[in-house]
Write a protein that binds this DNA or RNA. Structure first.
Lengths: 327, 327
DNA sequence: ATGAAAGCGCTAACAG
DNA sequence: CTGTTAGCGCTTTCAT
């Protein structure tokens, strides 16, 4: 391996001088030696050892990203937004899949700290993660899910309650009388808010909240599919407000198998607007979150904490209803 | 920040001793001091500085992963498989999106080398990337796309030609007489092979290869959509062999808009079997690649190069036809 | 069973 | 304009 020392010898200068030209701190370096050094660097194919540099300057220019699963289109988009913003700022992303499990969140948080990442962006699943986060001494920004923290951290959220409220109200406006709700049973703020918005819309419009019309499992396609089948056993439905698009896709699939027409007989509305939603059949009407932007904003917020010393930031992005074919 | 030196002082031992117990090299350490050190480490919440360790041992336990785009479900699955396998082996993944652009591939390769990653897994887009790879002095394994290299590297491929050959033959077997082909126009082995398989199946069954039935653009939904519209202007079709599932999804969408029934009037077959393919309507018949396994295998191969000094490995995984509703 | 000391490759005061 | 030098926090050989 060729080091800065070797370059210094070849150029007949000290390592300090080489370091200076390599880092652009060369106001006081003669043009001649500067060029000589650069030529040698080029000729020898010298690659700086970032690890050594990081040890010295105590910055790794890397960010940890802990999400439940990159295979979930929602988180893949968050990851892409984050990586794009990071790349623009000269940072790199270490990706970690937690599968919504506390043990993995904890493990990764610890690994990332050992790797001396400059900060982490995470979707914290369980509330006991909050203790782990409190103990963590690197900047953190929470995305998608929200947690109450003593420690100042960054948070990016969306008005979930408003989203499902809009969704359910929309269904009511379309004439639905029996609206079901299929979502996740994870006990966190996000799930609670989405359920709340659904109930609130029902109540404000004079409809009863019927627990037999609610199916709670996970934020995935299978849940939508199973949910419809279970709810159908319990009664009639003409509208479904889904906790996310994946659930809506599974629900539509089950509905079709039962011979129920979407949106004619049952109207379905999703949440998130993941990129494939416009391509399913019928195209999904959904509550849109600016997913990619959330990813970008998460690193921008993190960097303003890291580089500008900001703290306790909180940004709420707005959701909008996008009308397509499923309701 | 609390360091090993501090722990040593508190425990009244040398840093060497602390290091030994921390790394399990404590055969010769008395049980008593071992316990004392561990207690202090625990109590102080000591976190080892992985950067310092890496500088010393010249291993970072991290792997770079360069793919075109994590938002593409195919690469998201590769990423997930890779991360899972890496996690099991104590490695971490740095993710890089190249957008199929040489400049980004080159840039990331250089950044990853500076970060001293132990190896990189990449989907190399352009053939001029091969020169950059030759110059790179860390272990590399190529996935999905294949490149001819002098330097010994790892490669994981799939029999693409066989895949589209099977797909097209299947369509012919179903009675299609006018089979179109929609795929990517990237000039690489993979694209060439997939086109080749299609042509070969046509020829072997006595059908002419008609350039007016071929539309080449990108491996995405838009291409499928536009492809169908363009090809429809040029003539009749009753079957489409698609370069990947995303294209198939776009094609089906366009077909429906034109009022053409899938699979009754036009049969469509995809390639990859990305996870959403079974949920589209109709569920996609496709040539399945073991995507998740490819991701896993890529890190396993990389690690056997890194840790066991293997070289020039090449693994070809098999594709299989999965029959669903679209043809 | 434990410690002293060298050194990984780099940066940044400070000196000259 | 350039060099000397002291570390960053850790591992590891070699002594003891």
């Amino acid at each position: 391996m060729i080091t800065i020392k070797k370059i210094a010898e070849l150029a007949n200068v000290s390592t300090a001088t080489v370091s200076k030209v390599l880092n652009g701190k060369d106001q006081y370096i003669s043009e001649e030696t500067r060029k000589r050094i650069l030529d040698i660097v080029e000729k020898e194919g010298y690659i700086p050892n970032g690890i050594a540099k990081s040890l010295k300057i105590k910055k790794t220019k890397t960010i940890g990203l802990i999400i439940p699963d990159v295979m979930n289109p929602f988180f893949a988009e968050i990851a892409r937004g984050a990586e794009d913003a990071a790349e623009e700022k000269g940072y790199t992303i270490v990706i970690c899949n937690s599968d919504n499990r506390f043990s993995k969140e904890e493990k990764y948080l610890s690994i990332l700290q050992e790797k001396m990442v400059d900060g982490v962006i995470m979707t914290a699943t369980e509330s006991n993660t909050s203790q782990t986060i409190e103990r963590c001494n690197i900047p953190i920004v929470l995305v998608d899910r929200d947690l109450q923290m003593d420690k100042p951290i960054g948070r990016i959220t969306v008005n979930n309650e408003e989203g499902t409220f809009m969704a359910t109200s929309y269904l009511i406006g379309k004439g639905c009388k029996n609206i079901c709700f299929i979502s996740s049973k994870i006990v966190n703020k996000l799930s609670k808010e989405r359920l709340q918005g659904y109930k609130k819309a029902l109540e404000e419009n004079g409809f009863p909240v019927d627990e037999n019309k609610i199916y709670l499992e996970s934020f995935n396609v299978e849940t939508g599919y199973k949910g419809v089948n279970e709810l159908l056993k319990k009664g009639h439905m003409d509208g479904i407000c889904c906790g996310n698009d994946l659930i809506a896709i599974g629900a539509i699939r089950a509905l079709k198998e039962k011979g129920l027409k979407v949106p004619d007989e049952v109207k379905v509305i999703g949440f998130d607007d993941i990129s494939i939603s416009k391509y399913v059949e019928p195209p999904l009407t959904t509550i849109r979150q600016p997913i990619y932007e959330i990813g970008r904003e998460s690193v921008n917020m993190l960097l303003s904490i890291i580089e500008k010393g900001k703290t306790k930031m909180h940004k709420v992005l707005t959701v909008t209803l996008v009308e397509r074919g499923s309701s």
